[in-house]
Design a protein around this nucleic acid. Structure first.
Lengths: 99, 99
DNA sequence: AGTAAGCATTATAATATTTTTATATTAAGC
DNA sequence: GCTTAATATAAAAATATTATAATGCTTACT
């Protein structure tokens, strides 16, 4: 990877590296959700969710489809779910995370 | 993942989500390097490298072995290299990254 | 037209990260 | 013991992120 690519990759990873945004991706792994469903399930404000979704969309991790007054969110790239498996193992194996 | 785990996972991802730290991991994929080799290859200051390595070590992405006056860095968990493949594809497929 | 639901945007204060500069430590070689 | 090479730490300045509160925009319904 050349410098420019590392910078772009860092942006994508930064978009994932946040508890709420990580939660969004995890929930969307189970299928489409509305914005309201997301912030209720994650227990954050509507404004927060809207801002975090924007970041996820910019990095093309999430896409949004509009239907009437609601917006439905879903994953762009399910390949990222690998990262969860990887993190899950890392936390337990190297950072002695307890369940 | 429960909230606490998402927070821990976000910390690990944050450690990766930086151009220099990403560069370190990429270089170490090719084997052990000294701190000097790392900052020279990545073109950053010695102080920068030392601080970034600390973050990588805290999240157990990198480990350091001392030998005389030098320190040798290597990867703790090669499983993370998957993330690179994933990013490489994502940048090209969804963010139209040009080589 | 008026109202309410769903979501976005803006402004802002608090906090965290990044980078640089300067200084300290430690071990090797002479 | 002095010097140098390799690395760490501390402090400070610049910048970025986060969270909250307030407001605005659409759409649907009556």
């Amino acid at each position: 990877m050349v410098k420019e690519e590392r910078e772009a990759a860092a942006e994508v990873l930064k978009a994932l590296a946040h508890p709420v945004r990580l939660g969004v991706v995890e929930i969307l792994a189970g299928g489409e959700r509305t914005v309201t469903q997301l912030y209720e399930e994650l227990g954050c404000s509507q404004s927060m969710m809207s801002q975090q979704l924007k970041i996820l969309c910019q990095q093309k991790l999430v896409e949004i489809r509009k239907d009437g007054t609601q917006k439905y969110c879903s994953l762009c790239n399910r390949d990222f779910l690998k990262v969860f498996t990887c993190m899950h193992k890392h936390l337990r194996q190297f950072l002695n995370f307890q369940d």
